[in-house]
Amino acid sequence: MDLIDESRYDEQMRVMVLPALAACCEEGWMEPARAEDLPELDHPGSLHYLCYDAAKFDDLREDGATATFRGAVVISYGFTENARKYSELIWYFLLDGYSVCVLEHRGHGFSVRDVDDPSVVWIDDWRRYVADLGKFAETVGLRYAGDRPMGLYGHSMGGGIGAAVLERRPTLFDKAVLSCPMIAPVTAGIPNAVAAAASEVVCGMGFGKNRVVGQKRFTGELDMRPYRGASEARVRWYHQQRCETPEYRTNAASYQWVREALRLSRSILDPQACARIETPIQLFQAGRDVWVRNEPENLFVRRVRDGGGQVRFERFPDSVHEIFSMPNPVLEDYYGRIFAFLDGPVEPLDDQC
């Protein structure tokens, strides 16, 4: 498929991509999942989602569309992100024949918030993310997949959540792409074990909803330093969406989010949990990742394989964390591998990690 021209990125997104997505989009709301291992919420609220119908997209006769329905893909995005950020990726999935369903995680986008500060992300229990994504996939996702396969695309935090769903719901997804998944987060130069102990203490003192020291509110200023080597056109477009939409300005972790992210990490890496995974996985790793740690991703791959699971491991050594923000020559390879995996038979690579 032809990638969006970086030199005309804003124009093509505005004139071609966004109108087409709007024409095949369904907006909806879902009640949060209830699970025996989760406490009841005083104000459960509702979770926002966007779904894109491949049949309606095909009616638009866009250039490059396969006009072959392949199923549905559920997108589970990363920390402080939103559904709009994935517009370009959604466009490519639709061109390849997939309907796409995107749940906005609790505390993100237009979904319910549990803290007054709109810049802060808080969650009471990591299992809530997992239960909500599982419910969304088995209700909304399967409806869009029909009698065709349902895949998962999980990035960063959303990839960590997705990995936990694969461990708890081994037959829910047919295939899963985990792109730089948060098997373990980077904790500002502090070892994860130290950060875990410190966050437990702070939360125990009643400061779990406070913004982590050093984390900042969204200001509208764009610092390109963390994105060196990425496509500036893509990064600036993503940033502009946040500037234009107040609901997209989450920017900082709470102490309780850090605590739960590290609890999630320990659960994902449990060898018995890894052995429960049956879904074939394509895992991508970025060599210049500053947000999630590479070695826990490697350990996850080894433990899933040791448990009998199938994982294809691909490393992009010169990529930043958001591989989908890289220039077109990198994306051509990245998306080529994604669609070869989703569209074709599962053939494990003889790779190392």
Rank of each mutant, 00 (worst) to 15 (best):
L3S: 00
E6A: 10
E6R: 06
S7I: 12
S7Q: 15
Y9W: 05
Y9A: 11
Q12P: 00
Q12V: 08
V15E: 10
L18D: 04
C24M: 03
E26Y: 02
E27M: 09
W29Y: 14
W29L: 14
P32I: 03
P32S: 01
P32R: 04
E36V: 06
E36H: 02
P39F: 01
L41F: 01
L41I: 05
S46F: 15
S46I: 07
L47F: 12
L50T: 13
L50G: 03
D53R: 12
D53C: 06
D58H: 10
D58P: 12
D59G: 15
L60I: 05
G64P: 10
A72C: 13
V74K: 13
V74W: 05
Y77L: 10
T80G: 01
Y86V: 00
W91T: 09
L94A: 13
G97V: 10
Y98M: 03
H105P: 01
H108T: 04
H108K: 01
H108P: 09
G109N: 03
V112Y: 14
R113M: 11
P118Q: 12
S119W: 04
V121Q: 14
V121N: 11
W122R: 08
D124E: 15
L133A: 11
K135L: 13
A137P: 05
G141H: 03
G146K: 10
G162W: 04
R168F: 01
D174S: 15
K175Q: 05
K175F: 02
A176R: 04
A176F: 06
S179D: 15
M182T: 09
I183A: 12
P185R: 03
V186R: 10
T187F: 00
N192W: 04
V194T: 14
A195T: 08
A195V: 10
E200P: 01
E200N: 09
V202D: 06
V202H: 11
V202W: 11
G204D: 11
G208S: 07
K209C: 09
K209R: 13
N210R: 14
R211N: 02
V212Q: 07
G214F: 07
K216V: 13
T219I: 09
T219P: 04
L222W: 07
Y227M: 07
A230M: 05
S231K: 13
E232N: 07
Y238K: 09
Q240S: 12
C243T: 15
E244P: 00
T245S: 11
T250C: 05
Y255T: 07
Q256D: 03
V258K: 13
V258R: 14
E260G: 06
E260V: 08
L262I: 01
R266A: 15
L269F: 07
Q272D: 14
A275D: 08
E278W: 00
Q282E: 03
Q285K: 05
A286H: 06
G287W: 02
N294T: 15
V304K: 09
R305G: 10
R305I: 11
G307L: 06
G308H: 08
R312Q: 15
D318M: 12
H321T: 11
E322N: 03
F324K: 08
Y334A: 00
Y335S: 01
G336N: 03
A340T: 14
V346S: 14
V346T: 14
L349T: 05
